[in-house]
Design a protein around this nucleic acid. Structure first.
Lengths: 106, 106
DNA sequence: CAAGTTTATTAGGATATTCTAATATGCATT
DNA sequence: AATGCATATTAGAATATCCTAATAAACTTG
């Protein structure tokens, strides 16, 4: 099975390609956090959060480690944040463009 | 329906999260190309390529326009290339790390 | 206008994701 | 040992994605 570069790239993109998982990564900008905090922020079912964390970990985006009674998660590659920043610029630019076009119609 | 920023980010990530679609975008670094060229490069079914192009266009990643008998496609936001570059660095770094760990075992 | 090119669309089955609810696991504390 | 927390795993239904094969649509050209 010839695993090519774009397969690996696609794996990561796919792992990130869900609103909840984007939010999880976004919430980890400040560093490690325990599942309980992540859950509290997302306001979603515990098992659901756990599953999304597992997806991100399986793709290598997150790392984790037990710390006492809690489990801490963190983002493995800081580049992921750049990636989200770039993406944000893109959508902001796009929305701005749409607003501009609407203005012309008015 | 409250469409938030991370929904839009996730839409783009999801659209890019397939090996074939990564390859398509990668092939458009040089600028516009017609479907026939893209197809020839990918060596995949015509309808399959057409569907992947549609996914990328629906997500706003690609634009397209008829040009005579051909249809040309291009990448709308140049940031997408930066995104793929960042991703490539990530996977390369990861692979290097794995190789390093293997070396220790040997 | 008939025929050929290029691309898009549809249909359908196989597989994968996603969510909720229930249950299990691993530690800590009592 | 029993109980309580924090997290993971499993099961299962609903939905989405992906591919192939067939067909349609839009042009161009003879």
């Amino acid at each position: 099975m010839g695993r090519e570069i774009f397969d690996l790239q696609a794996d990561i993109l796919k792992a990130l390609g869900h609103p909840t998982r984007v939010r999880i990564v976004e919430g980890l900008r400040g560093g490690k956090r325990c599942v309980c905090e992540i859950m509290a922020e997302l306001q979603l079912e515990q098992s659901n959060v756990s599953q999304h964390l597992a997806v991100l970990k399986r793709a290598g985006v997150l790392g984790s480690r037990k710390d006492g009674m809690k489990v801490m998660y963190w983002v493995n590659h800081p580049e992921v944040f750049d990636l989200l920043d770039t993406l944000q610029e893109m959508v902001v630019r796009r929305v701005r463009e749409q607003v501009r076009l609407l203005g012309h119609v008015k």
